[in-house]
Nucleic acid binder design. Structure first.
Lengths: 266, 266
DNA sequence: ACAAAAGTGTTTATGTTACACCCATGA
DNA sequence: TCATGGGTGTAACATAAACACTTTTGT
């Protein structure tokens, strides 16, 4: 609902007629701080990594947290997220990166100081853009996903939950969309593409069957004629591909083990 | 991001070190109004219906809109949405209904009067709970989904977009979750369950194959021994089932036509 | 008797899985 | 020449689609 009922003080609009007879009181208009949080994934040396920043002040001083920031008055959450992504990664061409709204976290007690509603995003970055610049007091770093409880202890606020949700979303989307190419550089081998699935899902895939599956999906990848590259120094040079125009995978490429994550969050 | 950077005025925290050197100004803290919008679906007389309320005042006076309202200071968006759902539908046992966060809409100009960030939810109601009570100036009604541009003209604000997103989300989730039972009463026939798919997807399904598929998925439905019911007065009485404990469908029940909705929204 | 919907069976096509096997390269 | 990863082939298996057919009800 938009700001209806707010303009004329005390007026009972049609909407209130269905509000069990009680009109909105002033508290209903109390404002919130709105932020964005980013779960930025990349694949580095065969492992899934996540971009984190170290908090310099209370609460959760010294803890790692997801990067993010406040919405500015003239920008949408998507714009704010892309701006933060550019700032935190130091990447110049943020325009083409995959950025996807996850969900909004609004538990009243998620920030001990004030009421903050945060719109969370998941972002995929082809490769570690750089070791990450900046860096005096507050650091930012790519940490391996899932090291203990996110490396050095749990994340600040509810960011462990957000991160887990983001990982599950990405893993699920690999099944039925062409999202995997968003993790890859402009030109990639099918082995690299397969590694995306293996790293995110934490499973091994049959290279032969994976290859057939990908090539059988029109528009998933396009071969770059004549191009090839050595991968890892050993083995036969692999053909290079670029992302195709398709966005959906039909039929889907399901996780090997149908074990779905438990819980009431379908 | 939580309210970091807000507590001590003018202090530059570690986070700002990555903000291209510019500190947040006061505008960054400007508050927003936060609301929830609900896309409440049900199936009535073989058609998909959506719960709408008629706006009584400007802007968009006289237009239909999604029900919703402001977040109260002490409740999460989920709680606010469930509260609104109870108020708008008049249902008493809202606890078991399916309510799912869709996404958050935050375009700066989506409300002409003020800055409103809205968390949208999709809800599924087993049957038309009632013709809908209340009713003087502002009406609320179940309208068939997709009648022209939502029956009497386009919806208020960006609600057409929200509604389309909600419909697409529901349709997609039917493919790989057991969500369909949320549209059904506690005891239902497989024909009624199939109708959910047909109505939401707008396609016909083979009753025989659908039956096999559902029964082959453990935990999707459980037969109620001995019970049966006439459906529509004609035909053989159908066995009755209740929802099982499973939440995921493996393998998925894909839409007959792999035609996915166009657009850059995978 | 007929229409309608439930429910069963069967055939065909399609997709998936698990391998065996060859190819090209660096060490 | 050996290890390594790319790339091809193929048979066994599982799933999905199409459709014929029987059953049980109301009209």
């Amino acid at each position: 609902m938009q700001g209806r009922d707010k303009d004329e003080g005390g007026e009972r609009t049609g909407h209130e007629a269905y509000d069990n007879g009680e009109a909105y009181d002033r508290r209903a208009y109390e404002p919130f701080a709105v932020t964005v949080d980013l779960a930025v994934f990349t694949i580095r040396s065969g492992r899934l990594h996540i971009l984190l920043v170290e908090r310099g002040q209370s609460p959760y001083a010294g803890r790692w947290a997801l990067p993010g920031g406040f919405l500015r008055p003239d920008e949408s959450a998507e714009r704010a997220a892309r701006r933060e992504l550019a700032e935190e990664t130091g990447l110049a061409d943020v325009a083409g990166l995959h950025l996807e709204q996850l969900r909004t976290y609004s538990e009243p007690d998620r920030d001990p100081r004030m009421r903050v509603v945060s719109v969370a995003f998941a972002a995929l970055v082809p490769d570690a853009p750089q070791a990450h610049g900046g860096g005096d007091a507050a650091r930012a770093a790519w940490l391996p996903y899932g090291t203990g409880a996110q490396g050095p202890g749990p994340l600040a606020f509810d960011h462990d939950r957000i991160l887990a949700d983001a990982h599950e979303r990405i893993g699920g989307k690999l099944e039925y969309t062409c999202l995997a190419t968003a993790f890859c550089p402009p030109r990639f081998t099918l082995g690299e593409l397969r590694q995306v699935y293996e790293v995110v899902w934490g499973t091994d895939l049959d290279p032969a069957n994976f290859r057939r599956k990908v090539l059988a999906t029109p528009g998933f990848v396009e071969q770059i004629p004549g191009a090839s590259r050595l991968t890892g120094g050993r083995g036969k040079p692999a053909a290079l591909y670029r992302a195709g125009g398709a966005v959906w995978l039909h039929p889907p490429l399901l996780r090997p083990t149908p074990e779905r994550p438990e819980g009431p969050r379908p």
